[in-house]
């Protein structure tokens, strides 16, 4: 029996991710990896909307920020335990996603984009202004990382495995969701909303459920974000954070499972590592993004897959020896 090559590449990828803390020399890179993982969860959740639902949102930082604010406020300032704080933060953020879903899904396309943008900006304004609760632009800190099952999350490697486990669960859940009847019908509403409606599907409900599901994973990312940074400020809720998440999804490849993960790695690495060597790293980010749009408009993951496939299936025409015989091929 032959093991499919895709299986092998998956195994290699998983093994590499698990071995990472031993491969890199410094805690700094382990911490960067944790940041990539957290960003990847956020991008995955946004990709549910953009890639599979065709709903481009510019307000996804809302879930990241609200969950982060809530968990820090509840555990560090309101005296809740870590588990209670985490559960309430994720629960309340999911409820917020339900509410936002009601509002935003009244429109589609550009209207949807603008409503999510507006809702996100409202939250940013609240965080900025409600200083007694959020600390205003000085932000909110003081959170200690929890010790679940006796694990010391202050250790960078252990924290990395902790967030990696969440990424694994997120990937599995989202993959299952996409393959499920609901996920399939969501892709149906993306491509043919009117036909789906004619077939008797409740398009709005399908979109709303997916919206809430995406909000839930955004909240999980927010919780991990709070644990990682132990600090949150209005910047987290800002439009730039939403736009960055959108960039990760588009750069990596919308509607693919791994695209957002690759996109998250790209953006986080550029922002944190490359910026140490290149002062004008924002320009580099722009150039890379333009290059992606020009050469692989579908995103890095589908684009590279296409290139690899094209290379493999390249007609042997390029080989100089027997070029003439094959190049003619079947008559045109």
């Amino acid at each position: 029996m032959r093991v499919p090559s895709s299986m092998i590449s998956w195994l290699v990828a998983v093994a590499a991710l698990l071995a990472l803390p031993w491969l890199v020399t410094s805690d700094y890179y382990v911490n960067i990896a944790s940041q990539i993982v957290i960003a990847a969860i956020l991008a995955l959740s946004l990709n549910l909307l953009i890639g599979f639902g065709g709903m481009t949102s510019l307000g996804h930082a809302a879930y990241l920020g609200v969950a982060a604010y809530l968990s820090i406020y509840l555990t560090a300032h309101a005296g809740f335990g870590h588990l209670a704080g985490a559960l309430i933060a994720i629960g309340a953020t999911t409820v917020l996603a339900m509410l936002f879903g009601f509002l935003a899904l009244r429109a589609s396309g550009l209207g949807f984009l603008m409503i999510t943008l507006a809702l996100g900006q409202i939250l940013w304004g609240v965080a900025y202004r409600w200083a007694s609760l959020t600390g205003g632009d000085n932000g909110l800190g003081g959170l200690k990382r929890p010790h679940p099952f006796g694990l010391n999350l202050m250790d960078p490697a252990i924290f990395y495995y902790f967030v990696l486990a969440f990424l694994g669960i997120a990937l599995w859940c989202i993959a299952r969701f996409v393959q499920s009847g609901l996920g399939q019908s969501l892709q149906g509403t993306r491509d043919q909303p009117r036909r789906m409606r004619a077939l008797g599907y409740e398009v709005w409900l399908i979109q709303w459920l997916s919206f809430v599901f995406a909000g839930f994973w955004g909240a999980v990312a927010g919780l991990l974000y709070a644990y990682y940074h132990q600090f949150v400020s209005p910047q987290t809720l800002h439009l730039t954070t939403s736009a960055e998440a959108l960039l990760m999804v588009i750069a990596g490849g919308t509607g693919t499972l791994l695209g957002p993960v690759v996109g998250a790695a790209l953006v986080v690495i550029l922002k944190n590592i490359v910026s140490a060597y290149i002062t004008r790293w924002l320009i580099l980010l722009g150039v890379i993004f333009v290059a992606i749009v020009l050469f692989m408009p579908e995103g890095l993951v589908p684009g590279l897959t296409r290139w690899v496939r094209a290379l493999r299936n390249r007609p042997p025409a390029d080989k100089p020896a027997d070029a003439p015989s094959v190049a003619k091929g079947p008559a045109r």
Binding site: S26, N31, H229, K271
Partner: peptide, 19 residues
């Protein structure tokens, strides 16, 4: 360069101290 963003500042502090 912290880019004036709190999250980046944290990473940069780690970069300076740890790496």
């Amino acid at each position: 360069d912290t880019a004036g963003q709190p999250a980046v500042t944290k990473t940069k502090a780690q970069e300076l101290v740890e790496r």
